[in-house]
């Protein structure tokens, strides 16, 4: 009995390791490519005999990645902060007050999740041009906030409904606290776990955004990581070593965040899915 179950464990573990290796292959190819000099024509499978770190500094300079990193950071920070404030504020009455109007509003926000942002590309572009927001941080921040608000509200509302006891708010209300004070002093601190998850999900989405950025941030001074990278790829189709180095630089901040906060990444997803 013990013998067969330990054999089964070894077989399944080997299988898991095989899956891991297969999923790692493209990253391996990315790394070997980034570490080779332009004149090294060996296969991408071969780890370079002579490691060249120069690709990273060259890509950093040539693709203006420092500037792109700053732009992406600013947009991600403000959009995520707005999402958290506006989203949690909106979710509270929608989760707590089951009036007809609120039920309708909740359904409305959920339905918006299905709308593909590109379906409204033409008029959105026109709107942005008319408002004079082309090539500004604001346009990227606002568009990202609008498109991830429904998901944020959905996750907050589910969490408030299932885990925040009503009695706390009622006690505060008897003490004469106003709704806003109750929300920020009592409810919001209790939302910490789901706030952490939403923050992480939102940061990843916004950091990686390409659809909005490519339309509205074409000027080099405001371009984000993804736009800088797509331009750099276009210019260096013959020197993929540089592109690979740039891709690693662009990916590193979120990869580090992921490895440090892996638990929250996973919990956020699970919270959104097991509920309801």
């Amino acid at each position: 009995m013990d013998y067969t179950s330990s054999r089964k464990k070894i077989a399944l573990s080997t299988f898991a390791l095989l899956i891991t290796v297969l999923h790692f292959l493209p990253f391996y190819v990315l790394i070997t490519t980034a570490l080779k000099t332009k004149s090294d024509f060996s296969s991408k499978w071969v780890f370079p005999l002579e490691i060249s770190w120069a690709n990273f500094s060259e890509a950093w300079e040539a693709a203006n990645l420092g500037n792109a990193l700053l732009n992406t950071g600013i947009i991600t920070f403000f959009a995520a902060a707005l999402l958290i404030i506006i989203g949690s504020l909106a979710a509270y009455p929608l989760a707590r007050r089951q009036t007809k109007l609120n039920r309708f509003m909740y359904m409305f926000f959920i339905a918006i999740m299905v709308v593909p942002p590109l379906a409204a590309l033409v008029p959105l572009y026109q709107l942005v041009v008319n408002m004079g927001l082309m090539n500004t941080y604001q346009v990227a921040i606002f568009n990202n906030v609008a498109s991830y608000l429904p998901l944020t509200i959905f996750l907050y509302a589910g969490f408030i409904r299932s885990t925040i006891p009503k009695s706390l708010e009622e006690a505060a209300r008897i003490d004469g606290a106003g709704t806003l004070r109750i929300f920020f002093q009592i409810v919001f601190p209790l939302l910490k776990p789901i706030t952490a998850s939403i923050l992480i999900i939102a940061c990843v989405y916004i950091w990686n955004d390409y659809q909005f950025a490519i339309f509205f941030l074409q000027d080099e001074s405001v371009q984000t990581m993804t736009v800088a990278l797509s331009r750099f790829f276009g210019e260096n189709a013959n020197n993929l070593n540089l592109v690979a180095a740039a891709a690693i630089i662009a990916t590193l901040p979120m990869a580090i965040l992921f490895l440090l906060l892996q638990k929250h990444f996973v919990q956020g997803l699970a919270a959104g899915s097991v509920k309801e």
Binding site: V29, V204, N208, T226
Partner: peptide, 30 residues
């Protein structure tokens, strides 16, 4: 109950946090 659980989960999930644009480039090398 197997070994390498956390490792497998991490590596399989890793691409989720990468920009799909960059993921495309990575596979382009392939």
């Amino acid at each position: 109950s197997i070994h390498f659980k956390a490792l497998t989960r991490t590596i399989v999930y890793l691409p989720v946090i990468i920009s799909p644009l960059i993921m495309g480039y990575i596979w382009y090398f392939f």
